[in-house]
Structure formats: C-alpha cells, structure tokens
Simulated scan of single mutants.
Amino acid sequence: MANSPQSKKRARQNERRALVNQSRRSRIRTFLRKVEEAIASGDHAAAAEALKAAQPEVMRGVNKGIFHKNTASRKISRLAARVKALG
C-alpha cells in the first residue's frame, strides 16, 4: 500500500488513467469490430468506409499510449489488405 503522500496521489492518478485508457481501448475495439463485420458481410463500400473511420481512432490510441505504433500500423495494414481484397 502507498505510504507517502506522493505515492498515494500517484495511486489515485493511476486509477483514473486506467479507467480512461480502458474506455479508449474499448472504443477503438468497437471501430475495429465494425470493419471486421463489414468485411464479413462482403460489402466493399461499407468496409472501406468503416476502415476510413477506424484509422484515425487507432492512431489516436498510439498518441495516447494505448497501443504501440507498430501494432497499430500492423492492424490497419492487415485490415486494409482485406478490404482491398473484397473489391
């Protein structure tokens, strides 16, 4: 357990940041799931639109420290390739 005032404050901040990061990660996963569903339905236009909406969200996650840059790039690249294969 945190003893010093500084470590107590840090623990409080960490709890708040964890909740923010959790909601952000969930939001990004929702965007990615929409792309997956559009690909599964076979609708190229919907998949391309969903991917276009998901890309900035994923990269924002990188800027906020949710994902590593290479992880986000890999996810976007693989989704883009699958969307392209539909068309």
Rank of each mutant, 00 (worst) to 15 (best):
G61N: 03
E49W: 05
A48K: 13
R82I: 04
A80H: 06
K69I: 10
S4Q: 06
V83M: 08
H44E: 09
N21T: 08
N14R: 10
A48S: 13
A54L: 05
A54V: 00
A40C: 01
P56C: 06
S4R: 05
M1T: 06
H68Q: 12
A72Q: 04
N3I: 15
M1R: 07
R24M: 14
A2C: 04
R12H: 03
G65Q: 11
S41T: 10
A40I: 07
R12V: 03
K75N: 09
E37R: 06
G61T: 00
L86N: 03
I76D: 02
R29Q: 14
R74L: 08
A47E: 06
N70G: 03
A80D: 15
R16E: 14
P5A: 09
S23Q: 12
I76A: 03
L51C: 09
S73M: 11
R33S: 12
A47H: 05
M1D: 07
S7G: 01
A80T: 14
R12M: 08
L51E: 09
L79H: 01
I28E: 11
Q22W: 04
F67R: 01
R29A: 14
R24C: 10
A38F: 08
R82D: 03
R10E: 15
R82W: 01
H68W: 01
R10S: 12
A18I: 01
R33W: 06
N63E: 03
A46E: 15
E15D: 05
N21V: 00
N14D: 13
N70C: 02
A47M: 01
R33K: 12
R10D: 14
Q13C: 02
G42M: 09
K34C: 08
A85L: 09
E37T: 13
E36F: 06
Q13V: 09
K8Q: 12
R17H: 09
A46W: 04
N14Q: 14
A2N: 07
K8L: 08
M1S: 00
A72S: 08
A47I: 01
P5I: 02
N63C: 10
E37L: 14
R60H: 13
V20Y: 01
Q6P: 04
N63M: 05
S26D: 15
Q13T: 10
A46R: 10
R27K: 10
P5G: 00
T71N: 14
A48I: 07
R24S: 15
H68A: 15
R78P: 07
I28H: 05
S26L: 12
L32H: 03
K52M: 01
A45F: 02
S23W: 00
A47L: 00
G65M: 11
E37H: 00
Q13P: 04
R12N: 03
S7E: 13
R17L: 15
L79K: 09
R24Y: 06
Q55I: 15
S4K: 04
L51D: 08
R27Q: 15
K52T: 12
N21K: 02
A50E: 11
G87D: 11
A38Y: 10
A85K: 07
Q55L: 02
S73Y: 04
F67L: 15
A38R: 06
M59F: 08
K9S: 02
K34Q: 14
E57S: 07
H68R: 03
E15S: 04
S4D: 08
R16M: 08
